[in-house]
Every structure is written in structure tokens, then in C-alpha cells.
């Protein structure tokens, strides 16, 4: 009997660019993004799916990229933190994070921004509670969340 195959070739669109790669079947999506595609803005803060530092958008939905295998993203469109700023500079959410001091060390920030982006796309004017709920899966160990929540609520206020 033939050995089962332990790798696969995938095609993934990330921030508008298509990447075709051969990946180990066990490669986590987050490691694919960080180590293979070298988009290091997406972070890793745990090994249990609790912290949300790895949050990206997959086909428009916020997902934790450490909870998916790279092969599961075959054919999907991904968006990472590197895609948020545009030619004019920071987008309004990024701007709000800075002006509200919603980041200290900045390690949770990419994940926070991606969760908040998904929220604001679905609900442009969230209440404080809605903002808190949207980032409930993202741990920040520096800020106590208050300024993050204020920043998210302020974007379209």
C-alpha cells in the first residue's frame, strides 16, 4: 500500500496576492502565514486557541489562524493586519487605536484590529457591550481593554 501523503499543494489569496505552496499537512495556518509567506504581523500568543493574537479574516470572517491547518485555507481569501492601512496611511480603526492609546506593547493589536474590523463591517456603530463581546476572544495583557473598547466605539461614532 502506498504511504499516505503528508503534504499538499494549496493556493491561498492573502491581501489580494495569490500564493501557491506545497505545505505539510500538519502546518498550522498561522505558521504558514508567518513562516512561509513571511507576513509576521499576525502573532501567536498561546497554544490552545484562547488568545486571539493570530486573528485574521478568512472569506470575510474573523478566525483564529492557529486553529486551522494551512490546507484548510486552500482556495480561501485571507486578510491580515498588513492589509488594513491604505495609500493615505492608517485606516480610521488603526488611527483610533493610536489616538485612544488602545495599545501598549502592540502584541495583541493585530488580532484585536482584525476582530474589530469584522465587527465594524457587520455593525458599523457598535455599543460598548457589542465591542467587548467582539473582542472577547482576544486577550490583551497590557491595556485592561478599556481604551481598545473606546477606540472601536469611536471609529464611526
Amino acid at each position: 500500500m502506498a504511504e499516505p501523503s503528508t503534504s499538499a499543494s494549496i493556493s491561498v489569496e492573502i491581501n489580494g496576492e495569490v500564493y501557491e505552496r506545497e505545505v505539510d499537512a500538519r502546518r498550522l495556518l498561522v505558521h504558514f502565514i508567518r513562516d512561509d509567506v513571511e507576513l509576521t504581523g499576525t502573532h501567536i500568543g498561546c497554544d490552545t486557541g484562547n488568545c486571539g493574537a493570530c486573528t485574521i479574516q478568512l472569506d470575510g470572517q474573523a478566525v483564529k489562524s492557529c486553529m486551522l491547518l494551512a490546507v484548510q485555507a486552500d482556495g480561501a481569501k485571507l486578510r491580515t493586519v498588513e492589509d488594513l492601512a491604505n495609500d493615505d496611511g492608517l485606516n480610521p480603526l488603526q488611527q483610533a487605536f493610536s489616538s485612544h492609546h488602545a495599545l501598549q506593547c502592540g502584541y495583541c493589536t493585530p488580532g484585536m484590529l482584525m476582530s474589530a474590523t469584522a465587527l465594524l463591517e457587520a455593525n458599523p456603530r457598535p455599543s460598548e457591550d457589542e465591542a467587548r463581546t467582539a473582542i472577547q476572544g482576544n486577550i490583551c495583557r497590557c491595556t485592561g481593554y478599556q481604551n481598545i473598547v473606546e477606540a472601536i466605539v469611536a471609529v464611526n461614532a
Binding site: R34, T80, V81, L90, S99, G106
Partner: peptide
């Protein structure tokens, strides 16, 4: 409370943490 110098890179995923170095 001027805007923080660190923020620009950090909100764009352009910070350099040790694990980002290859």
C-alpha cells in the same frame, strides 16, 4: 499626550518581535 511614536508600526503589523527575525 502626543501620539505615540511606536503606534504607527505596531498597528500595521510592522513591529519587529524576536520571533519575526529569520
Amino acid at each position: 499626550s502626543i501620539p505615540r511614536k511606536e503606534d504607527g508600526r505596531l498597528v500595521q503589523g510592522q513591529g519587529v518581535f524576536f520571533d519575526d527575525i529569520r
